[in-house]
Design a protein around this nucleic acid. Structure first.
Lengths: 192, 192
DNA sequence: TGTAATATTGTACTTCGAGTCCCACATAGT
DNA sequence: ACTATGTGGGACTCGAAGTACAATATTACA
């Protein structure tokens, strides 16, 4: 993949909508070309195939998540406060870029097969969250979890599924409201 | 899709492994034919295309989830007890059929695009769980949740992601142990 | 048991889209 | 002006999806 100039990059999110709608394999390169206004030949100049176009978008999305999470982690407050911020950040990104997020989830398997993306997600999300879980145990703002990696995964799963439901349903979801619900669930638990 | 005889059905899970490994579009019909021992022509006799083969497997998996969940729901005990059983059931199915589950997640987007499967998942999982959440509020074994649908989604997400991590990592995961961790998370919450 | 319907399979074919090639032109750096 | 690199058009190749058809097996049932 050559470095993609912004003139191209800005047009690509249009492709995400197609891919989210139909899936990658039902999306012809020609369709992407037409939707984005980038000729097929030019697409092949930058990307080795249509997979790579999706990877570009996914990478971009993860970078955004990483930024948002990093900002949240750097907030003042207890680890619990900052974890809440992280979850809000995640759902905010989902709400802001529903098409790319849908494309991401729609091709989760592909993403999982690419070590680069797995690592990107780990760095963007799990690592900071695990860090927070550790700090929360230390500062007393969070219950100490014996397996932070699993807990981080569970948090991500809970937030992602809830977001996904809205994104798939096509509501323009109220990220803050949704975040508060997930936060209540994740912090309070179900026990009476 | 014609009714698929068991002689065919029992061979299809072999295909799930291929699909889980490479994704559906990297899996040639010929590969599926070779792996399962079912000739291409016969596959086309029963399925209109390779998508439908995956749908068949996904439908089958959801039926298994539905059964396991239904049994769990019918257990004696408080709603909380039964919800715990449901989560164990889910992770047990994931652990038992890792390939199909991976294929399912790998093509989550496709599944989400098929109303039939969305409904099947809703009936198999969300509906019973929402029901349990309601009963738990009534019998006092669960904290009353103001939005049971969202809570059900979050529970499913937490369990699924945790299971997914193990399934993708290729550990043969200890479903019971994993279930206890997720249960602890879901019931206890993170708050100190 | 004979016969019709349906299932199973091989071989050859059509079709369609991904990805390539090559050529033309534009733009920019030196 | 002239070389690099980017942009784009149009025709091409090639591989895999899916189809057509014919041959054989199996089942249903009269």
């Amino acid at each position: 993949m050559r470095p993609v100039p912004t003139s191209i990059a800005v047009k690509l999110p249009k492709a995400a909508e197609l891919i989210a709608e139909r899936g990658l394999d039902q999306t012809k390169i020609e369709d992407i070309a037409e939707a984005t206004g980038i000729p097929k030949t030019t697409l092949y100049y930058y990307f080795v195939g249509k997979e790579e176009i999706l990877v570009f978008l996914q990478r971009d999305l993860l970078a955004e998540v990483a930024d948002a999470v990093a900002i949240a982690v750097d907030t003042d407050g207890t680890a619990a406060d900052r974890l809440r911020e992280v979850m809000r950040a995640q759902l905010r990104v989902m709400a802001e870029r529903p098409a790319v997020w849908r494309a991401f989830i729609a091709d989760l398997g592909r993403a999982a097969r690419l070590p680069e993306l797995v690592e990107a997600l780990a760095n963007a999300y799990y690592a900071p969250v695990e860090q927070l879980l550790g700090e929360g145990g230390a500062d007393g703002s969070l219950r100490c979890s014996e397996d932070p990696a699993t807990t981080a995964m569970a948090i991500f799963g809970a937030a992602t599924m809830v977001g996904l439901r809205h994104v798939l349903a096509g509501h323009d979801l109220d990220a803050e409201r949704m975040a508060e619900q997930v936060i209540a669930f994740v912090f309070g638990g179900l026990a009476a």
